[in-house]
Amino acid sequence: MTGHDEILDPELEDDLGAEFELRGDQQSAALDEAREEAATHLETAQRVQAEFENFRKRMIREQTDAMKRAGERIVLSLLPVVDNLERALGHAVEQGTGEEFLNGVEMVLGQMRDILAKEGVEVLDPLGAQFDVNLHQAVGQKEDLEVRDGTVVEVYQKGYAMHDRVIRSAMVVVATGGPSPEE
């Protein structure tokens, strides 16, 4: 206000000054309010943006996963066929079926395994390995003092993994009573 000092008479200046100041107050209050509002909007925008970024990243990840897993369902439904072919061969060997026939069926099974392997399917056949809760599902326990405690002594059904994900845990029987695995 100093600029006005010389032009205005003191009385008028008092009056105007008060009014100027009053307006100034109003202006600055309005400015504060607008700034606050702007800050809120910026925060909201940032939050929405951040959420969207995270969402987008996850969508990309999920899409990649979904593509990988597209085959999972069909593979999963084919596994019992592989299981049963293996069972059939097991019985055939026991009973001494014709060797040529046996070789042929073994080739069929081999073909099937090749197809699965090409699709990134990995077989989990843990016989003799240590029981792993992440890969195997224990369906029984057997006292066996000969092997280390926690050794898989029987595999009811092989497990399968696809793209680092267990799609079917191996169904196993675990040994108990033997020496602890650390020893």
Partner: peptide, 9 residues
Amino acid sequence: KAAKNQAIT
């Protein structure tokens, strides 16, 4: 699931 897998043992 891991806990369920080992329950029987």
